[in-house]
Design a protein around this nucleic acid. Structure first.
Length: 259
DNA sequence: ATGGTAGACCTTCTA
């Protein structure tokens, strides 16, 4: 059972790149973030013809998340509980009906820049809602994978140049504490379970030659419940995807659980 | 040096 997470930065602009990677990696489940389109404009056909079931939670121009699965998807939840006025499409959850079912969420946490504005306050409120919902999900005591772009650099080791991120919302103490509090509910970062080396990054900015200089950060994670962590086999961070034609600024992360 | 790029979409916002 292989579960991928990838911020694709527009599924329509990136369609050929996304399909090329999907045909190579062939995950059973994929979580996409930043599809940047409404549900009706999601290019469903090429994914369905590859055998994927599809649920989409889209939005015009910005954000948007999707779940693909070779297994049936049930118990779908669109949007994060806790604020009925929140119109940003950043959370999608479903139960993957595999041999052993696993609940999977596609998460696109707010960026939060610039610090000191409503955007940063929204990020922290969103984090609190995610923590409350994760607490509820963990009570189910089932396999759970909370996958996505968390827009947080957890530790200095997760950035090539931590100094450059000192004033950024992704590296604020409040952001890092909120992420740590989420883990402390009892979730495991699959990066740690897999003992990936330092310098394993998942994002390089398009600007200023960040990729060429390897000025990356690790901000895309698959967080696992105890039941999922017990089934953990491995993690692959697809660094090579950053060198594809028309790359996303993020690369896919794939977690393997035993069947 | 406050630069640089990418996407949606229409002039500027988001990242």
């Amino acid at each position: 059972m292989r579960i991928a997470t990838w911020n694709v930065n527009s599924v329509n602009a990136r369609l050929e790149t996304v399909l090329a990677w999907l045909d190579e990696a062939r995950p059973d489940v994929a979580c996409f973030q930043e599809i940047k389109c409404v549900d009706e404009k999601f290019p469903a056909e090429p994914f369905e013809s590859r055998g994927y079931n599809l649920v989409v939670h889209g939005q015009k121009s910005y954000n948007g998340v999707a779940l693909l699965s070779k297994y049936p998807l049930t118990d779908v939840r669109r949007g994060l509980p806790g604020d009925d006025t929140d119109e940003q499409a950043r959370y999608l959850e479903a139960l993957v009906e595999a041999e052993t079912p696993v609940r999977v969420a596609a998460i696109y946490l707010p960026n939060g820049n610039p610090v000191g504005t409503e955007k940063f306050a929204y990020k922290l409120r969103w984090f609190e809602r995610l923590q409350a919902h994760a607490r509820d999900l963990l009570k189910l005591e089932e396999r759970l994978a909370l996958c996505g772009d968390y827009n947080v650099i957890p530790e200095p080791v997760d950035a090539r140049n931590p100094e450059a991120w000192r004033g950024d919302a992704l590296f604020q103490p409040e952001s890092r504490q909120a992420f740590r509090a989420l883990l402390n509910l009892g979730l495991s970062d699959s990066h740690e379970l897999g003992h990936e080396p330092d310098g394993t990054y998942t994002f390089w900015d398009y600007q200023a030659g960040a990729w060429q200089r390897d000025h990356g950060i690790r901000i895309d994670f698959a967080l696992l419940s105890p039941q999922a962590a017990d089934a953990f086999i491995g993690i692959e961070t697809w660094r090579a995807a950053r060198d594809m034609d028309k790359p996303s600024d993020h690369v896919p992360v794939v977690v393997t659980l035993n069947p």
